[in-house]
Nucleic acid binder design. Structure first.
Lengths: 208, 208, 208, 208
DNA sequence: TATGAATGAGCTTTCATTCAT
DNA sequence: CATGAATGAAAGCTCATTCAT
């Protein structure tokens, strides 16, 4: 006998995926419930059945999005690596995750446009508090003890910097490409960017 | 004395300011023409009289926004400074401009959400092509010749990095503050961020 | 018993009737969607739900209008009648159909004002191509063979003439009445007109 | 010294022409005051200065239109011609006037859509009462006396018939062409129509 | 669980018209 | 005589949301 509950769960997941794409493409204000329903090929009413309101749906999408990146981060096992390699791995990971998940960047922008008021309502996200900062702190400390990293580095600042170097480039790829008249998304350009980022970060953390 | 009413230019400028604030606060999809009209205390119809459509108004706002930052950049006179100081000035300027113009960040995000299709329609913006990259190239070269900068630095990558370091922090201030449970907008936090940025950038461009 | 509410087809038909009256009374440009909604006592949004746009609604009304007259024409069974009688029946039918369906005349005028661009978009109407011309051709030929009709009559010209004799009188009843200071819509006047039309047409087709 | 008044008059005439074209093309409801102003290349405010309201402008256009056709009719000098020829000339004139003035047909349709309420407000038009009916009555009587026309013909009915035969064909040229899949506006088609009309009318008035 | 039908509020846009010079 | 600036009202249309089954 077929488990009914699985169907329900599958519908919900499908709705979340469709909604994520819609919100990422059009923002919260520009997203259309009709279009989401059409994307999932499910009745619009069903979306309301599961998620009650557009804003709630957006919140659910955000929660899912954060859960996804946290899961990915957990696969990194940075503590198993030598400090310098760990930093490099983190930089590469951040870059490629953003690159492969443009919807993450867009959703983050949207969340911030609305001053993160959705985030704040979500205990789940706040509790999902990235353990990365702590891990990063341990790595930096280990590197300092080993004499290869300089001291006094704030792990949060470093994390924000790594993210920022990747984020700005990818988030603004359209305007930057237009204004500088240079396609920033060719494989070569992407490679150059990653190399530049690694140089910058390595140069900062490594002892002279 | 200039007449307050029936001044076409004055009305247009006032509309642009109100629209800029509205778009920055709510995004393109979330912005309301009614609210813009109320902000300017002018008849809604007048907005259409001058700007025809919401999208055109958004484009006009973007053009104005870019013109503003270009004007500010021109005041920097980086070429008059010693290379190391010039880089520092640029970093500080970028930081404080973004800090003092949160609407700039928001509008940029919105423009990118829509894949810069508005930007592309504007010859004015494309021609407004930032001369900063060229200036930055000259500074880097001068520093290299003087033996204080390392060689092989792509000015565009460096510019994007400086911007990214400031942008990500400020653009995502709400989500970051929420997730890390730490107010990133206190004077101290802001000062620390700028210091960190300068360290990072200086460490990258300066010869060991 | 059929449910009165939540009957999609019923709603659509009711909307079409209300829209037909509104378009006939005010033309395409003068028709108001609000007024149509009020006529049907249905939510305005529902009209858009089924017909998407005002122009599409007008097209649907036109299609329905043409279908109606084609249906009526089919009831005539002209081929069963003697040629002379058939011509008379057609004349009378045309006259009374126009007389009883003033909305038909008005809608036709509106369609032509817009250069039939709606008609052209409708495959349904173009395929609904009046079989009357062919029937009329057969009747004329039969009459000619029987020696009572003159030869060389173009059925299309004759059809247009019959229609025109009725149409102009009824379409312009207001201006004609005003200008000639004579009420053209009294029963007597209407009877005289029909008699005149029959005389004219009979005189034309019959052998001297 | 240049007479100022001529300019004013010229502007008014230009506005009337532009308005006539606009009303003919879009109907009363679809006509746009802005578009009329653009057609004349005069300020919209000036139109209001001279004609006060859209409806009044439409009325002025109607008056002018009627005056024009009455003028043309006066050039016919039908009473100078032999009765049979006079009827033929009238038929030809009606046909070619409608053919060359499609705006006349359209404006007439619009006037009737609004139930001639504009016409009724205009004493000028009502007084402009076509003398053609009287003339036509004289011609018919003359022909009857000469033994070439049958008696008992109502000049108004005949006039309406002549007009209707031309009007319907030309007014509905778009729908008829579309539905019958036959271009009714080629020179050949137009010639055939006129010939048919003359046959019909001659056949009716002439003694067997 | 799932859906087509229906709605009220509000959105962008339009339009005839008036103001001030 | 002529005009650019400004407006209130209303139009077409959209949208999130709910109803009934």
């Amino acid at each position: 006998m077929k488990p009914r509950l699985r169907d329900a769960d599958r519908s919900q997941q499908a709705i979340l995926v469709a909604a994520r794409d819609e919100f990422a493409q059009y923002g919260l204000g520009g997203a259309r419930m009709d279009r989401i329903a059409e994307r999932v090929k499910l009745n619009k009413r069903l979306i309301y059945y599961y998620f009650a309101r557009k804003e709630d749906l957006f919140l659910a999408v955000l929660e899912r999005t954060y859960a996804d990146i946290r899961d990915a981060e957990k696969q990194l096992h940075l503590t198993d690596l030598a400090p310098a390699l760990a930093i490099r791995r983190l930089t590469e990971f951040t870059w490629s995750y953003y690159l492969q998940h443009p919807e993450f960047i867009s959703l983050l922008n949207t969340a911030n446009l609305h001053q993160a008021k959705h985030l704040m309502k979500s205990d789940r996200i706040r509790d999902m508090n990235s353990p990365l900062i702590e891990t990063l702190g341990q790595i930096l400390e280990r590197g300092r003890v080993e004499g290869i990293f300089r001291g006094g580095i704030d792990p949060l600042q470093l994390y924000v910097s790594i993210a920022g170097l990747a984020y700005f480039y990818l988030s603004n790829k359209h305007t930057l490409s237009t204004i500088f008249g240079r396609n920033l998304m060719t494989p070569e350009a992407l490679g150059e960017r990653l190399a530049h980022m690694c140089d910058l970060i390595q140069g900062y953390v490594l002892m002279d």
